[in-house]
Structure formats: structure tokens, C-alpha cells
Design a binder for these strands. Structure first.
Lengths: 203, 203, 203, 203
DNA sequence: GATGAATGAGAGTTCATTCAT
DNA sequence: TATGAATGAACTCTCATTCAT
């Protein structure tokens, strides 16, 4: 495997586990089975590693979104598809989920360029919604707001997933778990649909 | 002003600005116009300061929620009231908003006890929704999921507020700003209402 | 009890347990049921407390030695008496023993005046021995050397007492304990006597 | 010179001069002409440096003692040899003498493993004495006690050496100095011999 | 490119001492 | 005299980064 990839994967593991600040370059290097110095042959700083992690993830999503543009389907199915895509990604790589969620604020604080890209993604959702409106499939609404709701849902779902593993002692039965992620997602989609969809014109 | 409060406020300012890890005890002490040692007369560690910040905020919210239980009003107005309360709080003290959002993952990682309390709050929302269901005002649904949507909305709104101040270069016109927070909130409430409310039984 | 005495006793307890450097003024004050500030009404510094502890102990011993000068007895019984006196003192107040042993180097380093006094004590032993020599009861020898052996014996006995409590795991049966302190002392005295005493002139 | 050795030697110098607690990592590093961080590449803590110092010294002594077991000589010459060995060691490296003496209590308090080893050495002396007894060269006695006297003598000699350099103001002429260390040692050996040795059987 | 020992600024924390009450 | 909150210099230890090999 290329060294840079090796480092990226090690960094994901360590940062997800310990957080960006507790993820020392030593630990990352050890995990990557590489010398500390080697990190600096591929990245100029520890921050840049984080930046790169975000960038790679952005690319994955951008590729999916780009591809999706060609889909010929209902707005609702598209949104549903997007949410499903994210959920699957996070289930495949939970560490990524943790990092995207936990470190985005750090990424923002350090002015990492890759983070800015992520806001583009919500534009795509907005665009889908707008198209729905234009096609009279969705009632008039502020698409930006709706796409914010959607991001919020995804993030909160992740936080619930990420934190519940340790925190659920008393309120055991109130906690979400991986089993009903899909159920959560479905309920959210239902909520969106029932609220936004223009009822089929009565004949 | 009591010293502990003085320190808490200084810490809020510094942690909101620099993040928990970059918020050094020196900076906090200087901001509080206090010697470093004084911090340790009131807190046993830097982490405990963060814990205390969370605890105070939790108390504020818990007090509000407790009080709210006596309200005699529609589920929808209650939810609306809660969201408005939070929004006002955050507008009053944006630094708190930033910390609650950015550091909750750290709080979780350090096992700060105060964080666990926050999950109680979502139980209250669940309870309101459940009552709505029992009273046939809300269609059957998983109340836990819905309360998760609500938290997600609030957090995402905060993130948008928090980050836009610096990040809006390209997509200027797509960014939210303080002026339309209320509009966002209204739209979200509308969405909830239209989706959840059982249409008044026709006579 | 006078405050100064109260503080001295507390300091003995804490310093014996934790060592001079780990004995914080806070701990001493708490043990003495006194405010930290009060310490400084009776002592100008933490070091001075140690100095005072040494001084008090010196006084006790000096009083005994002074008194002993009037004794009318054999050199051997005098030495034996001195050793017994010390042993009893240390058994009465083991904390004192620990401090005298463990902190004398600190006392020396800080140039505490009270420590210097202790070397006077060995002069008294020397004097007793010298008298024995003059009276032809002891063979000619360097009295200074012998008094050094005596101090060495006492200190090593203390060290053995002080440290054995925790260290004896494997070589249990090789360790000294309080029960045979007297036996140790007797053996040492025997050794001194058999070596130093001039055999009674044969008629 | 290997870095670890460089650090060890610097630490010996500083700890001997200032005591373990006043020997800051900064001072040690500076003396070793090394950065502070480098200390921690070789030792996990300041305590471990002290432990290592003790361990190295123990090894030296253990090697000597091991070698000595093969000696074919009288018990008395063996004991004499051991005492001479120690004295020479301490004259060669007086700083070591100071540390062994002054910090053994700290070593004990911190539970440094290397200190425990030193007690093994006194077992060897006991063994030599026991052999003397078995061979009817030494009168029956508690070997453990005698070896305690021997250690006590050595330590006290060291203390005298160590402290006299500064403390001798009043009793100048009573102080030992390097010139008569050998004389002291000889006198001590004489004392042991005259007291312990079984007189040659008369024909 | 790869290495990892060396670096040293800077972190969190402690604690002897002071002084207003 | 007694107090104990406030102080801040000084401590041990960490870790991102460098650079000679």
C-alpha cells in the first residue's frame, strides 16, 4: 500500500479513538508502521493529515453526488438515496464518522481548506429540493433550511451512534443502536415526505 | 463577582475562541484576571472547568424544562417554546453555543458527568411528544426519533451560526445568518407540525 | 496545647510519613488543625519547622547527657545506658527516628543550625571513652572512631526498623524486628566490651 | 559516550550536590549537555533516573561480591577486603557515596526496585561470618547483627566524610578527614577481629 | 525516501509564602 | 493572633518538528 494511504488509515484509527489533540504523531506513526519522520515526507504538519482525511472523504461524497445527478428519479428517492449512502459509509467506516463529527470544529478552527468543500454538499441537496419545487412535487419552502435539517439529522444520528456505546447505563431502553438506524432514517424520510410533498393533484 | 463565576466566564470565552485544547490555563487565568494557581483553588483540573461549564448550562435548561412541565398548552407550542428558548440562550451567549457544540465530544471522551445529563433533556421532548400521541394530537411515531431530529436541527443551526462568520467566502448568499434564525426555526416547526399533527377531525 | 507544639507534632507526623519535600505546609497545617498562615506566625519558613524538630530532639538528648555526667558508673554501663536511652526514645516516637535518619541530610544541606549540635553528642561519647582509657579500663584507641561506630550502629538499626516494615517479602527471616532490637543492642555492646575492655589485671 | 551514561553521570553530580528533590530535570539536562526531552527518551521519569543510579551501583558491588566468593582466604581478610572495596569506590566517586547515603530513604519511599537489591549484599557478609563460625574461626554470634554493624560503620563513615566538608567550624580537630579513613577502617576491623575471632587453640 | 534520536517551547499543575480581613 | 484565598515562580513531563545518517 502506498505510504501516504498507510498513514492516512493509521491516522483515522488513532484520531477517532483519541481525538485530534491526543493523537500524537508518535502513535500515528507506530500504527502506520512507519517512522515519525516519514509522516513529514508526506505531510507538512499534523494538521495537514487531518485536512487530507477530510479531503479524501469529501472526494468520495462528491463522486457519489456527481454520479447521482444523472439519476432519473423522484426528489424523495434521491434524498433517501443520499441518506442511505451516508449511513452505509459510516457503518462501513465508523472511525470516519467519528472524525467527521468530532473534528470538524477543529478543522474549521485551523481553517483547513477541505472542510469548506463539505458545505457544497448541502448545496446539492438544496438543488434537488429546488428541482422538486420547480416540478411542483414539493411545496414552496426554503431549500437551504431543509437541507440544514437533513444534515442535522445525519450528524445527530452519528453522535448518538458514537457516544451511546459507553454512556447508556440508566436509560438503556431509550438509546438508539445500530439495529434501528434504518428505522430512524425511514422515519425521518417519512417526516420529510409527509411535510414537503405536494399531495397528488386530485382529478 | 464570585471568583468561581469569574473563572467560568473567562473559560467560556477562551474555550469558545480557541477550543478546549488550545485554551491554556494561563490564558484562562489571564482572561479571568486571576493567577493560575487560583484556578486550582476552585477546580481540580482544566477538565473540571469544562465539566462545570456544561453543568451550569444543564441546570439552566433543566430549570426551564421543569418549569415548562406546568405549562398548559399544546404539544406544538411546547416544542416551539423549547426551541425558542434554546435559540435565545445561544443568541444571548454565543460562546456557550460554540462550546456545547464543539466540546461535547471531548466532554464525552473525558467521561464528564455533566454531559450525561444533557441526554435527559431529550427525554423530556420525547415525553411531550408521547403526551401528544396519547391525546391523539400527534400521529403515532417513534418519539425518540423525533426528538433526535429536533436536537439535530438545533445543533446544526448552531454549527451554521458558529462557522459561517469566517467561512463564507464563496457561497456567501447560501449562508444563514442571525437574521433568519427565527425563520429557520419557524420552517422547522412547520415541518414538524404538518408532518406529525393529526388533522383535526372533521365534523 | 501551645500552638507551636501543636504544629511541631503535626509536622513530625507528616514529615515522617511523606518526607520533608512531600510534606506540604497545607498538610501540616491541616494535621495541626490550624490555618496555613498560622504556621508562619511561629516559623519563618518550612525549613525552620524542620530545624525546630531537630532542636527539640537535641535538647532532650543534651539534657540526658548532661544529667548522665553525674553518673558514677563504669564506661561500659554509661555507653550501654546511652544506647538504651536512644532506643527507648525511638520506640516511643518512631516518627522522630524516621525524621532524624531521613532528613539529616536535608538538614545539613540547608545548613540548619540545630543539626550541628548533634555532633556534640558524639563528643560526649568520646569523652566517656577517653575517661575509660585514662582509668585504664579501656585499651588505647581512637575514641572518635569508636564513637563513630556507635552512631553508625544506632543509625543502621533505625534504618532497618524504618524500612523493614514494607520490604521484607522474600528474606523474611533475615529481617530484624522490634522484638530483637534489644538483642541487637546487647550484641553490639558485647562486641564493644570484649574488644575494648582491658582485661582485669591478674594478681 | 552513550547518552544514557551521560545522563546518569550528570544526574549523579546534580543529585549529590542538591539532593533528589532540588535536582530539577532542567539542571540535570543542562549538566548532561542534553535537552530536557532527551532525558525522557531514556527514562520514563525523574525517579527512574535515581533507580538507575542505584541499579548501576548495585551491579558493581554484586560483581565484586560474586567474584569474591571464589577467594580463598580468612573471613577477616574478606570482610576487610569488602570494606576496602567500598571505601575505594566512594573515594573514587564521592558523589555516589552521597547519593547512596542521602537518597536511600527516598528510594525506599518510592519503592524503587533497585534499592531492595542492596539488602542482598548484607546477606553475603552474613554468609562470610557464618562460614567463619562454622570453621570455628569466629565465636558464635548473630551474623545478621554483625553485618548490620558493618553496614552502619560504612554509612556513618560516609556521612562523616560527606558532611564534614562544610560543617566543621567549632570542633575542627574532632573531624575525620580523608587522610584517616583508612585508619578508621583499620580500627573498626581490629575491633571486629579482637571481639569475634576465636583465639588460636593453645597447644 | 526512510529513519528515529534529539530538541525545547510550552503544557498542566503544585505549593511555599503573603496579606487583607 | 488567626485565617485561608490569592499568588506566580517553578516544577515535571509531552510532543510536533527537525535533520544527520
Amino acid at each position: 500500500m502506498p505510504k501516504k494511504e498507510q498513514i492516512r488509515e493509521a491516522a483515522i484509527k488513532i484520531i477517532a479513538r483519541d481525538g485530534f489533540f491526543n493523537a500524537t504523531t508518535d502513535k500515528i506513526a507506530k500504527e502506520a508502521k512507519v517512522a515519525v519522520g516519514t509522516l513529514y515526507n508526506y505531510f507538512t504538519s499534523k494538521e495537514e493529515i487531518l485536512d487530507y482525511i477530510f479531503a479524501v472523504e469529501f472526494e468520495k461524497r462528491a463522486a457519489f453526488y456527481q454520479n447521482m445527478k444523472n439519476w432519473r428519479m423522484d426528489w424523495f428517492l434521491k434524498i433517501n438515496g443520499i441518506l442511505n449512502f451516508h449511513l452505509q459509509e459510516f457503518q462501513k467506516e465508523p472511525d470516519i464518522a467519528i472524525i467527521l463529527l468530532a473534528e470538524r470544529m477543529n478543522a474549521h478552527r485551523y481553517g483547513l481548506t477541505s472542510l469548506a468543500n463539505f458545505s457544497q454538499l448541502s448545496l446539492i441537496i438544496s438543488a434537488i429540493l429546488q428541482q422538486g419545487i420547480d416540478e411542483k412535487k414539493i411545496r414552496p419552502c426554503n431549500t437551504q433550511n431543509i437541507s440544514l435539517f437533513i444534515s442535522g439529522f445525519l450528524n445527530e444520528l452519528l453522535f448518538a451512534i458514537t457516544t451511546k456505546t459507553t454512556a447508556n447505563t440508566a436509560a438503556e431502553n431509550y438509546n438508539h443502536n445500530f439495529d434501528n438506524l434504518e428505522q430512524s432514517l425511514d422515519e425521518f424520510c417519512t417526516l420529510l415526505k409527509t411535510s414537503l410533498a405536494v399531495s397528488a393533484p386530485e382529478s
